[in-house]
Amino acid sequence: MSRAQFVKESAPSGEWKRQSNWFTGRITRESTARPGEGPDERGRWPVETGRYRLVVSLACPWAHRSVIVRRLLGLEDAISLGVVDPIRDDRGWRFTLDPAGRDPVLGIEFLSDAYRRTDPSYDGRVTVPTIVDTVTGLVVTNDYPQITLDFSTEWTEFHRPDAPRLIPADRAELNRLIEEIYQDVNNGVYRCGFATTQETYESAYDALFERLDELEERLADREYLLGDRLTEVDIRLFTTLVRFDAVYHGHFKCNRNKLTEFPNLWAYARRLYRLPSFGETVDFDQIKRHYYLTHDTINPNGIVAKGPDPRAWMAA
């Protein structure tokens, strides 16, 4: 089994493990590759407007964060966007939302086509977000934590004039929060949902709600996680919170509290939802259909939950 193989099986403890990111190239201003060429000897691709395509699923929280950051920074013209069907089949993410079932820029039917072209030996799970080079057709990266950081730091030449600064100069507290929220919340809901023993499920469940309780207290006297300014960590938390009551609470058994029962977190999430690039990029239909229809072991009958009412997100 390669290091990229999707580990859907549980570890001996019954704990679910997330696969590593296989394609970890970066698009940076330090790349020594010439325009139109592939990566340099360090795996760095050149920053070129109009060259790269960001492929996402609107259902996926890891991909959703890249959609939000791309819009916030004004990179729509610099980096094109491809959207896959929220329902995967055995071959993975499909471009069935596009005419003739092909991505109009890449000319492929499945995101896996780009993966195999880049590495014919790849036998892992195909993931979103993925950035594909439209010149060579090769995958640049599926390293979702790094993608949004690089949007902020490497693409500054193409940011809109009023783009927010999502990465503070002193990154120590940002990095700490990102790591804690990833372990216990972003990935924690999956550790609950895919646990195969009662013990590992309860351990993940307890860690999740302990962290949410801490975040609830943290937001008692501040607008954003780091104070009065929106940063990268707010985006990373938001994409989990916006899915919490719709899928994680019931589908993944994260049911001690609903998001709506955390007064500060619920108010915070709704504030973010109303900001440009947040609520307008949320598609509850695709979110629910993806989770309820692709996790056969959790929901074998494929019943998609009807609620909750999304109008609550716009309530005063």
Rank of each mutant, 00 (worst) to 15 (best):
A63H: 06
L54P: 01
P99W: 03
N299M: 11
V56W: 06
L75M: 09
A172Q: 13
R171S: 12
D206Q: 14
S152T: 13
V140W: 01
G82D: 08
L230T: 05
L97V: 12
V304Y: 00
R243V: 12
E109H: 11
D170A: 05
T156E: 15
Y273D: 15
L73W: 05
D40I: 12
Y52I: 10
P120T: 10
C192E: 05
T96G: 15
K253S: 12
R70F: 07
E9V: 03
G188N: 04
I235Y: 01
T148Q: 05
N257C: 09
F158Q: 09
D103L: 05
K288L: 08
S203G: 06
T127M: 13
I27Y: 07
G193W: 11
N264A: 11
A33G: 13
D98Y: 15
V47L: 02
Y248D: 12
E261R: 11
R53D: 01
L259V: 07
V282H: 10
E179T: 14
V83Q: 04
L106Y: 10
I303D: 12
D89G: 02
V105N: 00
R270S: 04
A169S: 13
C192Q: 09
P12E: 13
D221V: 05
D213T: 11
Y224W: 14
D133S: 06
L177N: 03
I68E: 03
N186Q: 12
G279A: 07
W313C: 04
